[in-house]
Structure formats: structure tokens, C-alpha cells
Computed example of a mutant assay.
Amino acid sequence: MGSSLNNAHFPFDSRIADAARGNIDAYLDLGMAYSSGASGMRIDLIEAHKWFNLAAVAGNEEAQACRSEIAEDMSAREIASAQAAARAWLRSTQREAA
């Protein structure tokens, strides 16, 4: 995992910009922030699952484990919502890159 979560203030805007460029570490950092409430962020397992899923699909094994772990605390509907959000993110970033 990247070191950005160790900072006193999570650089959310910077990590979103990195994620929009397909940065797998940014996906993982965002998943960690949403799953843990790092630096005062609100815990949101749907958002966390979305980001972990994006990193996992890109081959990040840590994200695969994190996604599985939080999925145990989520309903099937919440997981489906997170998966839909991940697909929407990919579509939106692919359109912007084109």
C-alpha cells in the first residue's frame, strides 16, 4: 500500500486524480480510507468495496483480500451497488481518456 494513509491528512483530491489515471495504489488507498475512516473520512463499505474491487481486478492481491474481508460485513445488495459503482467509474474514466 502507498504511504499516503500514514499522513496526518489523507490527500483525497490527489488520490482521486491518481485513480482517474488508473493508478492501482490510489484505488487501494481510497479503499483503505473508506473502510477504516482514515483521517476523519466517514466509513463507507460500498465505496471501500468499489475501490478495492478496482484494484483487485487490476491484480492487486492485497485489495483482493481487503475486498473479501469487508464483503463479509455487507449485504448482497450493497456488494451489487459497489460493483455497479466500480463499473460506472471505469466507464466515466474511459470516456474522459478518449
Score class of each variant (00 low, 15 high):
residue 86 A to S: 03
residue 49 H to R: 05
residue 96 E to V: 15
residue 53 N to K: 13
residue 69 E to W: 11
residue 95 R to S: 12
residue 8 A to I: 14
residue 95 R to M: 14
residue 72 E to H: 08
residue 40 G to Q: 02
residue 87 R to Y: 06
residue 49 H to M: 07
residue 96 E to M: 13
residue 95 R to T: 15
residue 70 I to K: 00
residue 90 L to M: 15
residue 80 A to K: 14
residue 61 E to D: 13
residue 37 G to S: 13
residue 37 G to K: 12
residue 58 A to F: 07
residue 9 H to M: 15
residue 60 N to S: 03
residue 67 R to M: 05
residue 38 A to P: 03
residue 14 S to Y: 10
residue 62 E to K: 01
residue 85 A to V: 07
residue 21 R to E: 13
residue 76 A to P: 13
residue 11 P to E: 04
residue 77 R to Y: 04
residue 84 A to N: 09
residue 42 R to C: 14
residue 95 R to Q: 08
residue 87 R to L: 11
residue 23 N to I: 07
residue 87 R to V: 12
residue 73 D to H: 08
residue 57 V to N: 00
residue 9 H to G: 03
residue 23 N to S: 12
residue 22 G to M: 10
residue 28 L to Y: 10
residue 12 F to C: 09
residue 18 D to Q: 11
residue 81 S to Q: 14
residue 87 R to E: 06
residue 61 E to H: 07
residue 65 A to C: 07
residue 21 R to C: 05
residue 38 A to L: 15
residue 47 E to P: 02
residue 90 L to Y: 08
residue 57 V to E: 01
residue 78 E to M: 04
residue 50 K to R: 13
residue 19 A to P: 01
residue 39 S to C: 15
residue 11 P to V: 05
residue 46 I to E: 04
residue 41 M to F: 14
residue 45 L to W: 04
residue 78 E to F: 01
residue 3 S to E: 07
residue 95 R to G: 07
residue 12 F to E: 01
residue 77 R to M: 14
residue 18 D to H: 10
residue 43 I to L: 09
residue 67 R to K: 15
residue 47 E to T: 03
residue 95 R to A: 15
residue 63 A to G: 06
residue 53 N to C: 14
residue 29 D to L: 08
residue 68 S to Q: 11
residue 66 C to Y: 08
